[in-house]
Structure formats: C-alpha cells, structure tokens
Nucleic acid binder design. Sequence first.
RNA 1: GCUCGUGUAGUGUAGUGGUCCAUCAUGAAGCCCUCUCGAGGCUUCGACCCGGGUUCAAAUCCCGGCACGAGCACCA
Length: 494
Amino acid sequence: MENTNPEALNRQKQIKRTGLKDLSNAVSGKVILRFAPNPNGPLTLGHARGVTINSEYAKIYDGKVVLRFDDTDSKVKPPIKEAYSWIEEDYKWLTGKNPDIIVRASERMEIYLSYAVKMLDEGFGYVCKCSAENFKKLRDNSEECQCRKKESKENLSDWNEMVNGKLTEGMAVVRVKTDMNLPNPALRDWPALRIQHSHHPMVGDKYKVWPLLDFQSAIEDHEQGVTHIIRGKDLMDSTRKQTLLYNHFGWEYPETMYWGRVKIHEFGSFSTSGMRKEIENKNYSGWDDPRLPTLRALRRRGFDSEAMKDFWIDLGLTQKDISVSLQTIESFNSSKIDSKCERRVFVRDPKKIILNANNIEIPIKLILNKHPLNKIKGNREWNIEDLEIYVEEKDLEKKEIRLKDFADIEVRKSEGIIQSLDRNDKRSIVHWIPKSISKKAILTIPNGNEIIIQEGVIEDIQIMKNNIVQLERVGYAKIESIDDDIIKLLWLHG
RNA sequence: GCUCGUGUAGUGUAGUGGUCCAUCAUGAAGCCCUCUCGAGGCUUCGACCCGGGUUCAAAUCCCGGCACGAGCACCA
C-alpha cells in the first residue's frame, strides 16, 4: 500500500456530514420546488417532512416553494373548506415563512381541461368507455381496447359529452396513449381525467370532468416551472407515467427524488380521513386533540418548530422505509426548549408533612434558580416558615430522603424530622413544595389513545398561561389555563 | 403474477474502492453534580442481510440469493 497509495496511510477520524445532500442539477436562484397536500385536513407530522425538506432546499438554493392544493377529488377525499387556511398556517408555523406561491388545482381547471383537449386533438389521448374492470383485463394481457382506435374527431365529441354532463360518472375516462406492451402494467394507457358530478366545496358544480393526480400534477408542475420534485417512493410510477406524458408534450421532466415511508411508533397508522371520522364521532376533541399526530396538536402541546425541522433534516432524504420513535423528536425538542423553560415543582398525589426543625437552625426563606444553569435569570422565593410541605406519596416509601435544595429528613408518619441541611449521604433527592405557595393543578397526559389525568399541587410562582415549564423530576408541560382554584397543565414530554 | 425500490448498532443516520478494527444522534446501563429517576457533564454497550466474484485493497464495484416495502384505483 505504501507504494500504490501512500496517502491512504494518513488516517483521520471520519466526520459525519450533516444537513441535506446536494440537489442534482440545481442552479442557485433557479430552483422551484413544490409541496402538494390534499386539503382534507390540517397538516400532520408526516407532512412535516415534505414541508421541511422542500423549504430547506429552497433556502439552500435561494429557490421557491409552491404550495399546491391538490383538490381534484370531491368524492373519495373531499376537501374541507377551512383546511386551505389551516394548511397555510401550519406551513408558516413550521417554516417561519409563507410559501412563495400558492395555487389551488380547483381554480386552474380551465388549464387542465385545455391540455386534455390538446391531448385528444393531437391524438395521444383518447376517451375510453370501457369499464374499469374490462380495461384492467385488457391491460393485464397487453391488449388494446376498441376506444384506442378512435379518430381525434370522435374523441373530441365524446369529450364534449363528458364535459357537458351527458355522460355520467363511470361511463368514460380520458386515457393517455402510452404502449400496451410496456413491461410495467401500471404505465399502460393510464387514466388522466374522469367524470365526477359531486359538489366541490370551492367551485361548486361547475365542472363535470376532473383530472386525476398524475395528469393534474404533471401539468401544474410544468406550468409552475418546477425544477425538482421530492415525493414519496410510492409515487415512483407517477414519475414514469408523467414522463411519458411529458414526452408527448415535448417537455422535460423535473429532477425527482424520493423518500420512503415513515412510521412513528407512538402514533400507529393514522390517515387524515380516518382522523376526520373519529373527530366527527367525538372520539377526539378536535384536530388539536393532544393524542393526534397533527401539527396543531403538537404545537398546542409545546413542540418547537425548529426542533421538528432539525428532526426531519437529520432523517434526511433516503428511500428506506423507517420506523422512528417519538422519543427521538422529543429529544430534539428538549435540546431546543430546555434553556427557555423555567423550573417549577409539581407534586403528584401530594401528602402533607410537617417539618420538625429538630433543633437545627433553618432558614425561613429559600431562593431557587429559575433554571439550574441560570440560562434564565431570576429566582423563585419559597417561604417555609410554617413548616408545612407536600411530598409525593411515592417518595415517602423511603424513610430517609433529601428535600431538594434544602435538607435531609427522616419521615415518621406525617412528620419530617430534619437531620441536616447539608447533603451527607447518597439518599435520593426528591422534589417537594411548601404548602403556602402551592396551588391545585391537574396534568393531562396523552398516552396512546388514552388520556391520563394526574392531580397534584404546583408551585404557584409566576405561572403564566401558554408558558412551557419543566416540572422537576416529572417533565415538560404547558400551562393551558389558570383559574382561581386550579391550574391546568398539558403534558409535553419527559 | 408483472413492475419498481430498499437492506450499516435497539432506532435513525454518515460513508460512493484504501483516510473505516466504520460517523453522529437517539436508546440502554453506569458514574458525576453545593443537590432534578425525566436538566447538565462523563463512561460503557452496540452494526456493514447472506454467498460468490473483481482487486494488492470492498460497507463501497459485479453476479446470485434472501428479507422487507411500494405501485399495478375512474384516491392523493
């Protein structure tokens, strides 16, 4: 090796490349990406990947992101009128900025329809009146159907019957002529537009014929000048179908990259339409129910958008199907929020203990940091004059404990005998709270499909609505409401 | 069945022929801390799917298996 490749002897520790890989064929300032959700609900954790990756690449290459609402199906996945603005909000929360361009497919129907006419006119598309079932049989045997042989004149007149409503749902479809002998059956004369007479929440009953995703998306990407498409690998065949269409039109297909499926352990398999149903059935309180994997639910609990972004960028863009734990996201979140979260004590299942000074001189006041490393300036003052404190029932199982930041005690029934103010041994340190500064609180914890409610008392010092605090030895929680007699906390994570 | 894709520690991720007895994070275990079992610091554990081939040299290239996943909707 010394002779053949001497420099290989100078070993160095490798370092991990961070951030996203380079986009191929990307010219700074010219990159146009897109994120295309169906507005049938707000954005979920899964969508966050698309939003993050696209907006991050746009940032790196000084490019643009098109937010495109793919709302061309009012039957199987009917759009929700409010979801358009929900999605815009969610996008802004996650990226910190608005999309550069926003388009709604339903507003651009004339464009799609005119390209459909062009396709029929130029003979690379046809109106097919075969049933889906029959066509599948023919396609599986690489056989052409009768409709394929029609002249463009006849196709155009059939098209008019589709458009004016004479032909009803299921009677005809427009197909793109590819090649019935293509090895991949999915690509053979694929359907581009179909008849849908259902009411559309945005444009009503204006259109009888609607494009399918592969057609609409292909046309719109071209119209917007999209240079790079990043999509799920389940859409690989879409790329191939659309490339065939682009060839007919004489266009050049954008660079395309794919990601694999992501499953978050804790959330199982959720679909937007599934969630919608559950919400309608009152099994969840709304789209921001803390058990749901929607961005609004996560935001409500106190997840930080930067942490979310870091998480998705760390996963990167790979075609592997992955299964990650919420814990990973939580750890990204902790590192973002910890230095911003003040500490407070929350004692669950509180048990009252009366302190016995035991002839030791004890202070009447304790001054505690708001943050252990003083990342947040300021402190909390605890008055312990009346000697009545609360400790968690579970912590009283041990008879000798240390009250954090205060004293070693021995517990005898409901009495706590102070043994020393200094820490003298390795006994466990527990959190506690003087009764005089405590206030009743409940902590709501989403746990899978359940909601766990924990009752306790919280340190009632500068408690502010919507703040996220770290409950010492418990975890992070958001203060959701403050009433005269009770404070409501929503669990974030440990 | 046809077509396509992916396989690096428990989970993710870096790595494109020698700088690799393999990176980083997370996790688990343990330790430290004038004091959090969930903050902070530190230590340890743990992986190239299998089998051939090419080469002085393979996680990396080639071939063949195997496993897993996806598409084949008038859904997106």
